[in-house]
Computed example of a mutant assay.
Amino acid sequence: MDLIAGGTESSAVTVEWAISELLKKPEVIAKATEELDRVIGRGRWVTEKDIPQLPYVDAIVKETMRLHPVAPLLVPRLAREDATVAGYDIPAGTRVLVSVWSIGRDPALWESPEAFMPERFLGSKLDVKGQDYELLPFGSGRRMCPGYSLGLKVIQVSLANLLHGFTWSLPNGMTKEELNMEEIFGLSTPRKFPLEAVVKPKLPAHLYAEA
């Protein structure tokens, strides 16, 4: 139950950040919508089996996790033996904290690291499954998040259906420049202020009744 509860909260935070970034980039929403209409059509909802055919939606998820990892610091590690990393001596017994927030914004690893650019993942083999150290939202190794597979699927399908089933806009004439993107920096990094948006359905009415 703890695994499911934790995965639900972290997934919701990630989806909220994704929608926030997309509201500042309507051209990205347009590209995602085009992909969804082409692959899924307007007659049904997105399912888990559709995700491999939605590379642009998947790229949005990865880019969101790069900029907004739910846990900015991975679970602490303990050095079992003396080691040297990038010229730094790390004695055995040292507690090591890995900042995935900093890795995701490192200009030595990412072009325009502060920009939200899902296209950077199109055609890229970088994944979030712990094998690529540039992108570690779930950690890596034996202490990797045990619920990463469930959490990733929930994020992908939830975001895909929110984009597929609804149009999104900012409320009360707010401009994208006025959208506050401050985060709370702690054990997790949710938005400082909850996202407010105007949402309108765009699929046939019977699909919402069945959902």
Rank of each mutant, 00 (worst) to 15 (best):
A211N: 05
I103S: 00
S11I: 09
Y148G: 04
E111I: 10
R80H: 13
G130P: 02
R143F: 12
K62Y: 13
L170M: 06
L207F: 06
V154S: 13
R42G: 09
G139E: 01
I19R: 01
G87C: 09
D58G: 11
S158E: 05
P76C: 10
P194N: 00
R77L: 15
A79H: 05
S112F: 15
D58N: 11
S102H: 14
L67V: 04
E196I: 09
P171F: 14
P26W: 13
R143S: 07
G7L: 13
R142C: 12
P137H: 02
Y208E: 02
K25G: 04
L187V: 10
E178Q: 15
W110S: 00
L73M: 13
S140G: 02
L3H: 09
G173H: 10
S169G: 11
R95H: 15
T175W: 09
G6A: 04
H206M: 14
D89R: 15
D58E: 15
L179C: 06
G147A: 15
G93T: 09
R44Y: 14
K31Y: 04
G87L: 08
R80F: 12
L3I: 14
K176A: 14
T33L: 03
P201A: 01
D2I: 10
V39D: 03
S10N: 14
I60P: 02
S99Q: 06
E81D: 13
Y133Q: 00
A92E: 13
I103A: 01
E134F: 08
S169V: 03
S188C: 03
E21M: 03
E119N: 05
K192Q: 01
N180K: 08
E9D: 11
L3R: 07
T14I: 03
T8Q: 12
I4S: 08
P171M: 12
P171E: 10
K153I: 07
A211Y: 11
A86Y: 10
A79V: 06
P204W: 03
E111W: 08
V96F: 07
E178C: 07
A18R: 01
S102E: 15
E63I: 08
E134T: 09
E16K: 04
S169L: 04
P190W: 11
L109M: 12
A115I: 11
L54F: 11
V46Q: 01
E21R: 01
A83E: 07
V85W: 12
A205Y: 13
P194T: 00
V85F: 15
G173S: 08
R120D: 04
M144E: 03
D58H: 09
E134W: 08
D127P: 01
L36I: 05
F185A: 00
S102D: 15
L23S: 06
G147L: 12
L73Q: 07
I19F: 10
K176V: 10
V75I: 15
V96Q: 03
C145H: 10
I29T: 12
S169I: 05
G130T: 02
V57E: 03
Y148N: 14
E114Y: 10
K200N: 11
G151N: 09
A211F: 14
F121M: 01
K25L: 08
V13K: 05
W45I: 11
A71E: 08
D58S: 15
A92M: 11
R77D: 10
M65P: 00
E114V: 09
K200M: 12
E27H: 07
F185N: 02
P118A: 07
L150T: 01
P137W: 02
A205P: 15
E134M: 10
